[in-house]
């Protein structure tokens, strides 16, 4: 039973508000959004920041459900993910992970590296361009979802790929919702 306390201490040490590991469905996303909303209200999170966090969660969780690799893990098969919401001092953070096919890795990496070189005005400009034209030609594509995540967070996306086997990797992302948001 000591491990339960260890888990509790681990969540506390890592400043976690709550987390979820498992498969995603649309109903589950709705529940996770509701839970996030009530936890953020409980923490008296300023409206603007709360809105940005929920917007980011919508895009990230729906992206996993619609675009991640579905696979069988023990009892469950589906779109597996790990999702953690936390707060370090005044900054909130979202850590999110899902399985991706290794063939997508290089493209995703170059996209994120490029987007991370842009400032918030450039991100907004690109967001409008993609919204209007559906595609963006300059230096590769970027989806509206990831641009909105960057626009709403006001910070760069930190990411890593953990190799699982020859075909799959675990894609981890941390989004910090900065103080200015």
């Amino acid at each position: 039973m000591a491990s339960v306390f260890d888990q509790y201490q681990m969540m506390r040490t890592h400043h976690l508000i709550f987390g979820y590991r498992g498969t995603l469905t649309n109903d589950l996303i709705t529940s996770l959004l509701q839970l996030s909303d009530s936890k953020l209200k409980e923490l008296k999170t300023p409206f603007r920041k709360k809105k940005s966090i929920i917007n980011i969660l919508i895009e990230c969780l729906q992206n996993i459900l619609y675009h991640s690799e579905s696979f069988h893990d023990g009892l469950f098969s589906g779109h597996h993910c790990l999702f953690l919401l936390g707060k370090r001092e005044s900054d909130y953070f979202i850590q999110i992970g899902n399985f991706i096919d290794n063939t997508q890795m290089t493209d995703l990496q170059s996209k994120l590296d490029y987007l991370n070189t842009l400032d918030s005005k450039q991100i907004h400009k690109m967001y409008l361009e993609v919204l209007e034209n559906g595609i963006i030609s300059d230096k590769g594509g970027a989806g509206l979802g990831i641009l909105r995540v960057m626009k709403d967070s006001g910070s760069k996306i930190q990411y890593a790929f953990q190799s699982i086997d020859k075909t799959r990797s675990f894609y981890c992302m941390e989004i910090v919702i900065s103080e200015q948001v």
Partner: peptide, 9 residues
């Protein structure tokens, strides 16, 4: 109140 980016399009 809330919308996703695919709704925006």
């Amino acid at each position: 109140q809330y919308f996703n980016t695919s709704s925006t399009s």
